[in-house]
Design a protein around this nucleic acid. Structure first.
Lengths: 206, 206
DNA sequence: ACCCTTCTTGTGTAACTGACAATAATGAAG
DNA sequence: CTTCATTATTGTCAGTTACACAAGAAGGGT
């Protein structure tokens, strides 16, 4: 059955973050120098693993590139699965891993609004269009290009021009940017309210 | 030396949340029916406790009343310390507990913006003025009363009128409210930007 | 009747958001 | 060289929201 990559501490002295990097590298070839790991939450429910008490520290991994996964020591096979496939239940995960994935995606979506996390999905230098694609991919929505340009440039310290242009793929060359110094975005990039739940607004008197 | 309340799991089957409630009750008389506990983060650095490897799951406790603390089994004494005293370093805490407290306060401040958490600091019924005091206390700022009234009432499902009024303390009686069904606030109550860092905006050409 | 205290409400202006289309800069084709 | 196709970039306008700001309402006490 499919499961998120993970494992146990090697020894009493291993740091949790190091262990997460090690387990991730074993099964996905994402080494610690090309991936950003961030602590999500602890899942320690006594009944979550039938084999015994397991307390897991879930981490969220952010990387600009996804190398082909390799079956590591724990697993017979490894593959990248689109988040939507997991969240919708089309792909079943072991234990409470679907719940963890759901929390992780929601965390990433929120974090994109208020932090410069999105730049971690891009390479060293990137265009605004590429950055927009990150937001559209994570949020699962389409964004207006003009408003996106205005907003990302209004958030001081978010992106800084790299000076150079990128060879065009048949159109006008795009300006290249780098990640700025600020990690918290102000003003934030609020994602569009998905369905805009319709409240009962009728029956208003006067 | 002062330290945050905490301890270890009693046995392999004890839930983490239950253990946190138990440890809190032992030292503060805050029983699980009058306090809200929320998972913060995991602190597992190998060197954080010189006695050996300790992985702590930090929790944030929210309560409307603070009963007089009692020295429990672990501690020789217990006391409530204002957050500012801890954050400013006027009161030294053991291990990395000051760091944990700092993260916890920041978490609470952010959470007040986007969730109905503030009502958990109030009693069953409360006035809008009391709710405003919660925000001012946690955020450490003063808020405009008129705008606060408008905002909390604009967030549908945040507070619902209780119908009754509260005997005045010498002024006009205040309307009483209860916590509404919604846990996420929309629109959120953004806290005022503390210093409003002055960016270098001079030197603009043209 | 008056004052004091506390709670409650409205208005105008500035800023922002979101919907919308036109122009600029390149490479490729004729 | 002209034209076209493609991608990148910029501006406007209307609706909404945000904040600063002051006056009135409802009690209790003198």
């Amino acid at each position: 059955m499919l499961a998120l990559p993970g494992g146990f501490l090697n020894h009493d002295g291993e740091e949790i973050l190091d262990a997460a990097h090690r387990e991730l590298a074993e099964e996905t070839a994402l080494t610690s120098d090309c991936v950003h790991l961030e602590q999500l939450a602890v899942y320690g429910e006594a009944s979550r693993d039938p084999r015994g008490r397991v307390v897991s520290v879930a981490h969220l991994a952010i990387a600009p590139e996804l190398p082909d996964p390799v079956a590591g020591t724990d697993a017979t096979d490894a593959a990248w699965i689109p988040a939507e496939t997991v969240l919708s239940g089309k792909a079943a995960l072991a234990f409470d891993h679907r719940r963890i994935a759901t929390d992780g995606v929601e965390h990433a979506r929120t974090k994109l609004e208020f932090s410069s996390l999105a730049t971690a999905f891009c390479g060293e230098e990137f265009t605004i269009a590429e950055l927009q694609q990150v937001y559209e991919a994570v949020w699962g929505t389409r964004l207006d290009t003009r408003n996106f340009y205005r907003k990302v440039q209004a958030a001081k310290g978010f992106i800084i021009p790299a000076g150079t242009d990128r060879r065009s793929t048949g159109g006008r060359p795009a300006r290249l940017y780098r990640a700025g110094p600020k990690t918290v975005l102000f003003p934030p990039l609020i994602r569009p309210t998905p369905p805009a739940e319709e409240e009962n607004t009728k029956g208003e008197e006067e």
